[in-house]
Simulated assay, not measured.
Amino acid sequence: MTKAEKTKAYIIEKTAPIFNKKGFAGTSLNDMTAATGLTKGSIYGNFANKDEVALAVFDYNLKKLTDIINSDLSQQKGARNKLLVYAEQYEKFLNPPFTEGGCPVLNTAVEADDTHAGLRTKATEAILSWKKTIVKIIEQGIKDKEFKSDTNAEQIAFTMIAMIEGSMMIAKLLDNKQYVTMVLQSMKKMIQSID
Score class of each variant (00 low, 15 high):
residue 138 I to F: 04
residue 165 E to A: 11
residue 169 M to W: 01
residue 66 T to N: 10
residue 9 A to L: 10
residue 103 C to F: 01
residue 26 G to M: 08
residue 74 S to D: 12
residue 55 L to W: 05
residue 87 A to H: 04
residue 188 K to L: 03
residue 22 K to T: 09
residue 32 M to Y: 07
residue 41 G to M: 08
residue 89 Q to C: 07
residue 22 K to C: 08
residue 6 K to W: 03
residue 103 C to K: 01
residue 121 T to L: 13
residue 122 K to F: 02
residue 27 T to Y: 02
residue 47 F to P: 04
residue 182 M to K: 11
residue 168 M to S: 08
residue 99 T to S: 14
residue 51 D to A: 12
residue 122 K to L: 03
residue 1 M to R: 00
residue 7 T to K: 08
residue 141 G to L: 09
residue 117 A to G: 01
residue 109 A to G: 04
residue 106 L to W: 01
residue 169 M to E: 03
residue 74 S to I: 03
residue 112 A to M: 06
residue 148 K to C: 03
residue 184 L to S: 06
residue 33 T to A: 09
residue 180 V to W: 00
residue 68 I to N: 04
residue 67 D to K: 10
residue 80 R to M: 13
residue 106 L to N: 02
residue 170 I to S: 01
residue 165 E to M: 15
residue 151 T to W: 01
residue 79 A to F: 10
residue 122 K to Q: 07
residue 120 R to C: 07
residue 43 I to G: 08
residue 156 I to E: 04
residue 183 V to D: 00
residue 113 D to T: 14
residue 126 A to P: 04
residue 10 Y to M: 15
residue 42 S to F: 03
residue 183 V to A: 04
residue 76 Q to L: 03
residue 162 A to N: 15
residue 37 G to M: 06
residue 77 K to A: 15
residue 83 L to D: 01
residue 12 I to Q: 09
residue 3 K to F: 11
residue 141 G to W: 04
residue 150 D to S: 09
residue 127 I to M: 11
residue 150 D to N: 12
residue 107 N to K: 15
residue 166 G to Y: 09
residue 177 K to C: 01
residue 128 L to P: 00
residue 191 I to V: 14
residue 71 S to V: 10
residue 187 M to K: 02
residue 81 N to E: 13
residue 137 I to P: 02
residue 6 K to S: 12
residue 110 V to F: 12
residue 79 A to S: 15
residue 116 H to R: 11
residue 38 L to A: 04
residue 69 I to Q: 13
residue 195 D to R: 15
residue 183 V to Y: 00
residue 69 I to D: 09
residue 158 F to W: 14
residue 128 L to V: 07
residue 176 N to F: 05
residue 97 P to E: 14
residue 152 N to M: 07
residue 105 V to L: 14
residue 52 E to I: 12
residue 10 Y to K: 07
residue 164 I to M: 11
residue 29 L to A: 11
residue 113 D to W: 15
residue 35 A to K: 11
residue 128 L to M: 13
residue 107 N to G: 11
residue 14 K to L: 13
residue 74 S to M: 05
residue 167 S to C: 05
residue 22 K to W: 07
residue 53 V to F: 09
residue 154 E to V: 08
residue 169 M to P: 00
residue 23 G to F: 14
residue 54 A to L: 12
residue 36 T to Y: 10
residue 185 Q to D: 15
residue 92 K to L: 13
residue 134 I to M: 01
residue 20 N to Q: 10
residue 49 N to W: 06
residue 157 A to G: 02
residue 35 A to C: 07
residue 78 G to I: 14
residue 72 D to M: 11
residue 77 K to T: 14
residue 149 S to F: 00
residue 74 S to T: 07
residue 56 A to P: 09
residue 91 E to V: 06
residue 83 L to Q: 03
residue 83 L to M: 02
residue 101 G to E: 07
residue 19 F to S: 12
residue 111 E to H: 10
residue 95 N to F: 09
residue 93 F to Y: 15
residue 164 I to E: 01
residue 96 P to G: 02
residue 83 L to C: 02
residue 55 L to N: 14
residue 137 I to V: 13
residue 154 E to P: 02
residue 97 P to C: 06
residue 192 Q to Y: 07
residue 33 T to N: 09
residue 109 A to Y: 06
residue 101 G to L: 06
residue 194 I to K: 11
residue 6 K to H: 05
residue 182 M to W: 05
residue 62 L to G: 02
residue 121 T to I: 08
residue 105 V to G: 00
residue 9 A to M: 12
residue 106 L to M: 10
residue 70 N to E: 14
